[in-house]
Design a binder for these strands. Structure first.
Length: 443
DNA sequence: TCTGGGGTCCTAGGACCC
DNA sequence: TCTGGGGTCCTAGGACCC
């Protein structure tokens, strides 16, 4: 496989700055220059911050309730996470980026790898133009790192974000000779390396490896034996030998191998009825994603658990069902999820979250059966659901919604059940909902 | 009172087979 | 008392990522 990749080309990593916070600013320019934080579902904890919020010392992952008072004193603006908006802006951004360089591999909602077949200077000019275009056309600032390997591109990108003079674009070549020739790796702690998490960093420090340069200079074979094959790859990548590949980025559309839909409840709930409702709804969300990627699943798992240890004895229930035939039918899959949990829910427990996991995913085209031998649901019901959802929007009707869980909220696709998520500071979904489109006034 | 959600890859160990 | 060698497949759990 390595042979298939052109060795001469450089890895280009484009990564949006403070992506969620930047998205909130696109349609609310008055937020620019102000401290903005974006909160996780249920407005639980901070998941993104503008530069100004970072300067106030707000750390990612901090529970909102713990810093709320201080943040409000500092005039921090908080938003519930609006994934519909972020997803939409992400698709636009990726689309623009892909017109500048080949080999795009969308790595996450806010970053993608690309390849440049050009030399350093030409690559730099292309990346500067790419950055300007995205900023002007989408309104999102991105930083770009260019390096021989993905691991080094991550480091280079990180540097570009922090140093104004780079104008958002940095080449590994520029950094390799810094610090009097020792290179920038001598000043980077190991936990800042892509692929080295907290646990591994602790173990590495235990054997005296503290900086990236020390890891780069360690023996990859010995480290593989002692730790893992991933760490060996990281070491090789730090030395400039690419060995982390994306297997199937052809078309940029990779398929998931499993799909999970899980949520914390807005408030803990008790009793099988509520859990079954939630699990039915999550199963339908998961099915939409399954159908979108044109897959069928073979196994359906469902789980629920009580949350906070302080509010009761921790308790969890889970179960799974193998389907008689691979399916993407919400009727079948929601029923399987309910069956998987049936009997294991304890009536006295207050559950805080639940979820549905679809595994054993296969390509829908790879599975054929005669219509009469297919899965034993009423085909009419599924197709009616599909047609209604297509015409009137997702989740207007659905399974498990009969028990009065359609709420009053503005969001048509959200259920109004007691257990539904809290998102009290949600911005408008300007790019995906007609009724939430921004209005511009000209004087 | 209140701490997210959705993934991937790798490894070890068990079941099973010849 | 002694108890092969090698392989595959599956699953659970750890670790990491954004």
């Amino acid at each position: 496989m390595p042979g298939e990749h052109a060795p001469a080309s450089m890895v280009v990593l484009a990564d949006a700055n403070n992506f969620f916070a930047s998205c909130e600013t696109v349609f609310h320019p008055e937020l620019a220059g102000k401290p903005v934080v974006v909160l996780s579902n249920n407005d639980g904890c901070v998941v993104a911050r503008s530069n100004e919020a970072k300067q106030l010392g707000i750390i990612n992952g901090t529970p909102w309730f713990m810093i709320r008072e201080a943040a409000e004193r500092d005039h921090v603006i908080a938003r519930s996470s609006n994934y519909e908006l972020y997803g939409s802006l992400s698709r636009r951004m990726m689309s623009v980026l892909s017109t500048f360089l080949p080999g795009q591999e969308v790595y996450s909602i806010d970053e993608c790898f690309m390849r440049s077949p050009w030399d350093g200077e030409r690559t730099r000019q292309i990346c500067l133009a790419m950055r300007r275009t995205v900023l002007q056309g989408i309104g999102i600032p991105v930083s770009v790192g260019v390096a021989p390997t993905k691991t080094l591109a991550k480091i280079t990108n990180h540097w570009a974000k922090r140093h104004e003079r780079s104008h958002g674009v940095t080449l590994w070549h520029d950094l390799a000779q810094s610090d009097g020739g020792a290179g920038i790796l001598a000043s980077i702690p190991i936990e800042d390396i892509w692929g080295v998490g907290r646990r591994l960093a602790k173990r590495l420090r235990g054997i005296g490896i503290r900086q990236a340069a020390q890891l780069r200079d360690s023996d990859p074979v010995a480290m593989r034996r002692r730790f893992s094959v991933q760490l060996e790859r990281t070491i090789l990548e730090l030395n400039g030998f690419p060995c982390i590949y994306d297997d199937d980025h052809a078309g940029g559309n990779t398929r998931n191998t499993e799909l999970l839909c899980s949520r914390m409840f807005g408030e803990p709930v008790q009793g099988e009825d509520h859990i079954v409702q939630a699990v039915s709804v999550y199963a339908q969300y998961a099915c939409r994603r399954l159908q979108r990627q044109h897959s069928l699943c073979t196994t359906v798992s469902a789980f629920c658990s009580s949350g906070n240890v302080h509010t009761g004895i921790p308790s969890a229930a889970h179960g799974s069902m193998t389907l008689p035939d691979p399916s993407d039918d919400p009727v079948i899959i929601a029923a399987a999820a309910r069956t998987a949990l049936h009997g294991s829910i304890i009536p006295s427990v207050r559950y805080a979250r639940a979820g549905v996991l679809l595994t054993g995913l296969i390509d829908a085209d790879a599975f054929h059966t005669l219509p009469t031998l297919g899965a034993n649901s009423d085909p009419g019901l599924s197709s009616v659901l599909e047609q209604v959802n297509r015409r009137f929007g997702p989740m207007r009707v659905g399974i498990g919604c009969a028990a009065g869980i359609r709420g009053e909220g503005r969001a048509s696709e959200e259920v109004g059940a007691r257990w539904a998520m809290k998102r009290n500071m949600l911005s408008q979904r300007c790019t995906t909902r007609w009724e939430e489109m921004p209005v511009v006034h000209a004087n």
